[in-house]
Nucleic acid binder design. Structure first.
Length: 516
RNA sequence: GUUCCUAUCGUCUAGUCUGGCCCAGGACACAGGCCUUUCGAGCCUGCAGCGCGGGUUCAAAUCCCGCUAGGAACACCA
């Protein structure tokens, strides 16, 4: 059996000996609490959804608590609509939260915009303990410094660390509004990470960074740290882009006297060109809602997302949520970025569509038929429903997405369009006009017009006429307009005698010499 | 620039910690074939990968060193 859990860590900075630690110890705790903390500035995208899924699975698998927190400190960009979209997408994926919006919880409020007094209190605490200080340097002064040494080489020199009361009064009198900076000290910071192992950062690369703006509002690194502590988060699971942020946050935990949680930084999700998935570049193609609206099943999406970076072994790759609850292990999430390739999603989606029974599948397909204008509400009589189920059954596995039901539009409409290629290839043949003529009279008389009788009759005709299997494709094209689709005999009976006769007429019309 | 992360088929990945069972396994995609009344289905076959260079070892995808390439962060964004 496989074990990722043992990690050897060799730190040249802290110590010159090896530390062995069993990752399993990191998750063997009683009250596991994890959170997903989106900013409501857009829809839930593929990468965020995967992080949420990993987090949720980690919680559920370990009997923990899954918290949803809304990081909406950026008032300008946060919208109510985004929030709703994100919650809907999470629900659609089946990721339910134990604490958070709409349900509250013991650590409410779960919106950062409503927690300002809490942040205020903790800033004061840092100021009082001397772990943070007011900095009166203006943005302009700092920018000037940066310009001198180059933006990349600049590090704040701690100039305001030792300000006297008189200095402060002087600056205040000038009308300067101070920022708050954290006093950074120490040699090295080690991030314990369930996915990456131990990651060590040199503290000397950090300067006294700002935790509160001059307008008094706290910054992300600070709010997120305070909330994660107060909400008793034991494992911070998030995207890899936050990894280099983590040492700063660890410094804040320490300054505040809070225990630092364990971390798990999930690798980035890239597009097929190897670029990071972004709203700007990819638009709705990276939003979860897009896939819901285009006929993907949540179980397919979940399966797809979880396999982006995580694997169970070398053979199994289809997992129901129940199986994931048993098999998911965050330690088996890979370290390298993965590429979002829709082919696999499509394959999974088809597999999962086929797993639904006909009744279910019919229900799933109905909204797409309505959207395509193929079905009206008042049309859904019992008879029609029975017919629909037969149709869905006949379509079978010919759907990659639920929206593919639209390929069967010829069953619904009165006037079909003929596919040019199909007509050319299958209808414009010498024997077809005669075939259609014969068929017309056969079908007109046939009793009953059901699958067995139709099939028997066609086969009989195929044999007698000497045409054999050649008759099949022309019939198909004549009555559906296409060269592919559900079984021919099913299609004929699903269509019904009237429509079939009507379309044979239409096809014959099409084949008149004047029309060629 | 500095710090940090990463590197197995086109893609998702197994294998790496515990070297030999791996001249690297599976899946998706792709190509070909078969079957079938059509088909995007099914069955079969094929294609294709350990980034590079050193070292250690009887033996390296696996351990060590170096390089290269990609990514992230370095904000009074989150």
């Amino acid at each position: 059996m496989f074990h990722v859990s043992r990690f050897t860590f060799y730190s040249p900075i802290i110590n010159s000996f090896k530390i062995n630690l069993n990752k399993e110890l990191w998750i063997k705790m009683n009250n596991i609490r994890v959170r997903f903390a989106p900013a409501p500035t857009g829809y839930l995208h593929i990468g965020g959804a995967r992080t949420a899924l990993f987090t949720w699975l980690f919680a559920r698998k370990n009997n923990g608590t899954f918290i949803l927190r809304i990081d909406d400190t950026d008032e300008a960009r946060s919208t109510e609509e985004s929030l709703r979209g994100i919650l809907d997408s999470l629900r659609w994926l089946g990721l339910d939260w134990d604490e958070g919006p709409e349900i509250g919880g013991p650590h409410a409020p779960y919106f950062q915009s409503e927690r300002t007094d809490i942040y205020q209190k903790h800033i004061q605490k840092l100021l009082d303990s001397g772990n943070a200080y007011h900095c009166y340097c203006t943005k302009e002064e700092i920018d000037a410094e940066k310009a001198k040494v180059g933006p990349w080489n600049y590090r704040y020199n701690g100039k305001c660390r030792q300000l006297t009361e008189a200095d402060k009064r002087h600056y205040e009198a000038e009308g300067r509004k101070p920022t708050v900076r954290l006093k950074v000290a120490g040699d090295a910071i080690v991030v314990p990470d369930l996915i990456k192992g131990y990651v060590e950062f040199k503290a000397e690369t950090l300067d006294d960074f700002i935790i509160v703006r001059s307008n008094g509002t706290p910054l992300y690194n600070f709010t997120s740290t305070v909330d994660d502590s107060l909400m008793r988060i034991t494992h911070v699971i998030r995207g890899e882009d936050h990894l280099t942020n983590t040492p700063k946050q660890i410094l804040i935990y320490q300054a505040l006297g809070f225990e630092t949680p364990k971390f798990a930084h999930a690798p980035t999700v890239l597009d097929t060109e190897g670029r990071k998935l972004s709203k700007r570049r990819h638009g709705e193609l990276v939003s979860i809602g897009f896939y819901r609206d285009n006929g993907y099943l949540p179980e397919a999406m979940v399966n797809f997302l979880v396999r982006l970076g995580w694997s169970y072994d070398d053979k199994e790759e289809m997992f129901t949520v129940d199986e994931l609850l048993e098999k998911f292990d965050i330690g088996r999430v890979g370290k390298s970025a993965s590429i979002f390739d829709i082919q696999k999603l499509k394959w999974l989606n088809r597999e999962y569509i086929m797993k639904r029974d006909i009744h279910d599948r019919t229900n799933l397909v109905i909204p797409f038929l309505r959207k395509a204008g193929l079905l009206n509400d008042d049309e859904l009589t019992t008879d029609r429903r029975v017919w629909l189920e037969k149709l869905v059954e006949a379509v079978g596995d010919r759907m990659t997405t639920l929206a593919d039901i639209e390929n069967s539009s010829f069953f619904f409409v009165d006037e079909i369009e003929y596919d040019k290629k199909a007509v050319k290839k299958s209808l414009k043949r010498d024997f077809v006009p005669g075939l259609l003529r014969d068929l017309k009279s056969i079908f007109a008389e046939l009793q009953p017009f059901d699958e067995n009788t139709v099939e028997a009759k066609i086969r009989e005709y195929a044999g007698q006429s000497g045409l054999g299997g050649k008759v099949m494709l022309p019939i198909r094209v004549a009555i559906t307009g296409k060269s592919f689709g559900p079984g021919l005999f099913e299609s004929l009976t699903l269509l019904g005698r009237d429509k079939v006769l009507q379309r044979i007429d239409k096809a014959m019309e099409l084949l008149r010499p004047t029309n060629t």
